[in-house]
Design a protein around this nucleic acid. Structure first.
Lengths: 211, 211
DNA sequence: CCAAAAAGTAAGTGACCGATCACTATCCAC
DNA sequence: GTGGATAGTGATCGGTCACTTACTTTTTGG
């Protein structure tokens, strides 16, 4: 198997492991065992454990961006954001790993290199949402804030094992995230100067692909 | 020094250490060194490292509740929630440890015992806010969601070292968290059946004190 | 066919970590 | 003062972990 294929496998396994136990709680041996290779071989594919963690962060962020892109396909403005909110909640329910990485990547931000990576990744998602929806900053803040609350509630226990007291909260989130704010915003408003929006969505995707 | 005083010292040191490196990333030796006692002595005060972590979670949650209580003193409804939002943001700016513990406690939720503790603590804060403000669930969801977003942004880098791109986001948060929703809610609305509100704020404080 | 490059591993290494145990020092009631 | 409770420590143990080295196997291009 080529090194590149192995690297992909390793990153996926790393996401699965890091999402549960975090950067410091996961051993490289656990990841190697999941892939089915020897533990030392990981260090030929990635120089350090931290680099592997950052690759896992990048991978799961790319997944989120893809889901947003697909959800918003052909839509714009409030409609696009509604579809994205729904898609994100479905994704959280379907995929534990994504939630775990969200939690763990912020917890690992005490490491400057990880912090820089997380910052870049979150900027990417932020601009991606901006480009996909064209929504003003207030709506995007709301969108992201609700997403973070979803993460927190999911961390405390998924719907089954968890406490039913959060159910009304989740109901509110479902109702409110889908149309992120009740009052519609002005989709014809001009983009403010210096906004990354001006670079365009296509340009952004291209940039993130070539990187 | 009495064991009880030492325990308090240790918990405070544990908050400082755990907030940065998390449950798995912090060694008991680091905590002991910060307190100025030997590492084995920690295990006479707390049976395991995890128990100490949970004590740290409880401690920082009590701090948040205290800040909310003080901020809401003499106020109710929207006014109380506005004061609490402001107090929370000030607290986040003034106290790195609180933010760190917020991040780390959710990341450590893969451990069932930690998860149970975090769930209890967050329920406490949730009901506390409910009792202090009497605000309906939509407003509290908004309040908590914005708080989580604050945590995330702070994790990616505080105002100084960080990226200025989040400044407009913070501005929105400042404007919106203070009056949590622009439209005022009906403060005379009857409390829904089974709501913890019926137990009353004073009763809640008493319960949390005797615990 | 063969040599070089690439894929992959077994066996370690030194450091660290949570927890235990056996021990000492200090205080206080009688 | 003495005996018991309590505060506190040094030494250490079994185990783990990230990472290295030195080696073997497989693939591949000429």
């Amino acid at each position: 198997m080529s090194a590149e294929e192995r690297r992909d496998q390793v990153v996926k396994a790393a996401v699965a492991e890091f999402a549960v136990r975090g950067l410091e709680g996961t051993s490289t041996g656990d990841i190697a065992k999941r892939v089915g290779v020897s533990q030392p071989y990981l260090f030929r594919l990635f120089p350090t454990k931290r680099d592997l963690f950052i690759a896992a962060v990048d991978h799961s962020a790319a997944q989120v961006r893809d889901v947003f892109t697909k959800a918003a396909d052909g839509k714009y403005g409030a409609e696009a954001m509604a579809a994205m909110g729904e898609a994100y909640q479905d994704l959280l329910l379907a995929d534990d790993e994504l939630l775990g990485m969200q939690l763990q990547q912020f917890a690992a931000c005490h490491d400057p290199e990880v912090q820089a990576a997380v910052r870049g990744v979150m900027q990417g998602i932020w601009h991606h949402v901006e480009n996909l929806t064209g929504a003003p900053v207030e709506n995007r803040v709301d969108f992201f804030a609700k997403g973070m609350l979803c993460n927190m509630i999911a961390a405390m226990g998924r719907a089954d094992g968890g406490d039913p007291m959060w159910q009304p909260v989740l109901d509110v989130l479902r109702d409110e995230v889908k149309p992120p704010r009740c009052e519609p915003y002005d989709e014809t408003a001009e983009v403010r100067a210096g906004s990354p929006r001006e670079s365009g969505y296509a340009a952004y995707v291209e940039r993130s692909l070539t990187k």
